[in-house]
Amino acid sequence: MNHIIQVEDIVKKYPKVEYNSLDKVSFVIEKGERVGIVGLNGAGKSTLLKIIMGILNPSEGTVKTFGKNPMHNRKQIAGKLGVVFGQRTQLQWDIPVIDSYELLGSIYGTANIDERINYFEKYFYLEKILNKPVRSLSLGQKMIAEFVGIMIHDPELIILDEPTIGLDLEIKKKMIDSIKNLDISKTIIFTSHILEDIYDVCDRVIIINKGKKVFDGSMREIDRSSTPAKVIVTIDNDELFLSSESYVVRHINYGIFEVEINQVTEISQFLQEVTRQNTILNLEIKTEKLERLIKSLQEQ
């Protein structure tokens, strides 16, 4: 059995709330899948995650995590589960990070926590933070310490709820790289408002809107979808020459233009055109497919 999570027609009703927080949501997540769960604030993402982890019971429908009802087997499932809640901490505030790791290792029965710490040493300079009290760490260092903390017991299912929130670019990249390079047998559920991160890590996306599952498909499906793209062009002067008038051009700054292209497939044609007639200093292509998809689904 490769189903790690099986969600069938779950409904979650809260008292005094008119609409259902989750409404007939169904999906299956297989072992080794990397799934992004996306939606606006209040869409039902957190409720869904809590039901999967066994913190909340659905009002209707069934959910199985590792083949078991998570509400009734929370302690058993917890041993195979690693969770990061962005901006929340499981590390003890006043004492060094390593003390919390030792405690977590003892809770989960991890034989050698040094081995686990060494594994992450290649991504983050853990040596610098291990002996520091958590309260003295920067936000980025705290998130790294938090992330390594949940990986101490080498969990099979990793739930990352906004793990990159508030991180600077360098640390965010390191964290994303370390997640991407995790063993392929690990199942990852990733939620983030930064869709670029979802794009980097996940191979499947589930979009939740107002409690309903409105999209469930692979990144390839999103890639194939015909959506507009944006190209940021930087040239050596302040006048952009284009022979076709079908592009929407916006002047951003001296020598910097944002060009909207109707279809992603037209990008190569545009690039030929722009390079032929202008001296290009820099080009940046933003497809924003996921953003567009979410926006259009919400509008529907």
């Binding site: 982890m53 913190i55 929370r74 302690k75 058993q76 917890a78 041993g79 589960l81 969770v83 809640f85 929340r88 901490t89 499981q90 809770i107 989960y108």
Partner: peptide
Amino acid sequence: QSGDIAYKLLLPV
């Protein structure tokens, strides 16, 4: 108040 209780509830102890 911080919501850190969620972590504690997810521990296998």
